[in-house]
């Protein structure tokens, strides 16, 4: 009997891919932690909604995607953007409202988009993403590209008609669409345990005749494996899947949220559950990566975020003449 571990490891997660996963999760975490500090300084216009704590979801899903694929995001969209490959400096500049931003500084945090990366946009409309994904998935199917569309949405959006109609349409048309319900327990201040009838969002998949699975959102490997199976199935013509990712956001709904609706132990979730710490201990425990290598990634990421913030602060703001550019009709 063999006592050696055959390769490849599940989902093709070799050392190189594991480093990529760690870098993406660390970049998201560092990006959000920095915004948490910078937002308090008052330099950032509008609202920001931080994705810290949820990194394993965007990363575990988007690692399976390539240029054929598109994603639709939410108001809490920074993590999805980073995981889909949007330039971190352009994102930071966008959040600061600068001309060098991903959308020339006109969108801000909730409207970062980069169509060249298949990132259809963060979206201030709750439940706005799923219909968009039905469109791109239909295009992929018609053009036979093998591409898939992934809609990230929250527990609040799971109750929206747009989301439920999209699940129905995707099932009826057999679209290569993946619906990732990121259930962080609260839609703004409303508990999903109260507002989501039947409690598990994934349970609703049965009503649309598609698979629905629940995964631990703090476990990168669980998300990665489930998303990989769903995406492979969709690429092969197997149709849509609903994946419910359960976790907790580390910060409030938006920066400045007093969070009187959350228990202290939930607010302190990062002390007990952290996808980055869990990832780190498991990859070093199996000997696939070493601590020094991960720390060097940390250093590179922190330097990137420092540079992104410094450059964003120095970048010019849009001018009055920019008002009439990037619009469909210039009056």
């Amino acid at each position: 009997m063999t006592d050696t571990l055959p390769t490849p490891v599940p989902g093709g997660l070799d050392a190189q891919r594991l480093r990529e996963a760690y870098r993406t999760m660390r970049t998201i975490r560092a990006f959000e932690e920095r915004l948490h500090e910078e937002f308090a300084s008052g330099d950032i216009p509008g609202f920001v909604h931080l994705y810290a704590g949820e990194e394993a979801s965007a990363t575990g899903v988007c690692m399976h995607l390539d240029d054929r694929d598109s994603i639709a995001s939410t108001h809490r969209g920074h993590g999805h953007c980073i995981a889909k490959g949007v330039d971190v400096k352009a994102m930071m500049a966008e959040i600061y409202g600068r001309r060098t931003g991903a959308c020339q500084g006109k969108g801000g945090s909730m409207h970062i988009a980069d169509l060249s990366k298949g990132m259809l946009g963060a979206n201030g409309i709750v439940g706005g993403g799923p219909p968009l994904i039905c469109g791109t998935a239909l295009a992929s199917k018609q053009q036979n590209t093998g591409g898939v569309g992934v809609a990230f949405f929250g527990d609040g959006a799971s109750n929206q008609g747009t989301t439920l109609e999209s699940l129905n349409l995707a099932s009826v048309w057999g679209l290569p669409a993946i619906f990732v319900a990121e259930n962080n327990g609260f839609a703004e201040a409303t508990a999903s345990a109260w507002s989501v009838a039947a409690d598990n969002i994934a349970d609703r998949a049965a009503g649309f005749g598609i698979p629905g699975v629940i995964v631990d959102g703090f476990d990168f490997f669980a998300v990665h494996e489930a998303a990989g199976e769903a995406i492979e199935r969709a690429r092969g013509g197997g149709g849509p899947t609903l994946i419910e990712v359960k976790f907790t956001r580390y910060y409030g709904h938006f920066e400045g949220d007093q969070q009187s609706y959350r228990l202290d132990e939930v607010k302190q979730a990062r002390e007990t559950v952290d996808c980055l710490k869990a990832f780190r201990s498991r990859v070093t425990g199996t000997g696939l990566l070493d601590e020094a290598g991960l720390e060097s990634i940390d250093g590179e990421v922190f330097a990137l975020i420092d540079a992104a913030v410094a450059e964003a602060k120095q970048a010019p703001r849009p001018t009055r003449s920019d008002l009439e550019t990037d619009v469909y009709v210039s009056y």
Binding site: D203, A205, V213, I214
Partner: peptide, 17 residues
């Protein structure tokens, strides 16, 4: 009754209700 076997196989769904 909610794990990945709903996806990789046709395992039965046991809803909360």
């Amino acid at each position: 009754g909610r794990d990945i076997r709903r996806l990789v196989a046709q395992a039965s769904v046991f809803p909360t209700t």
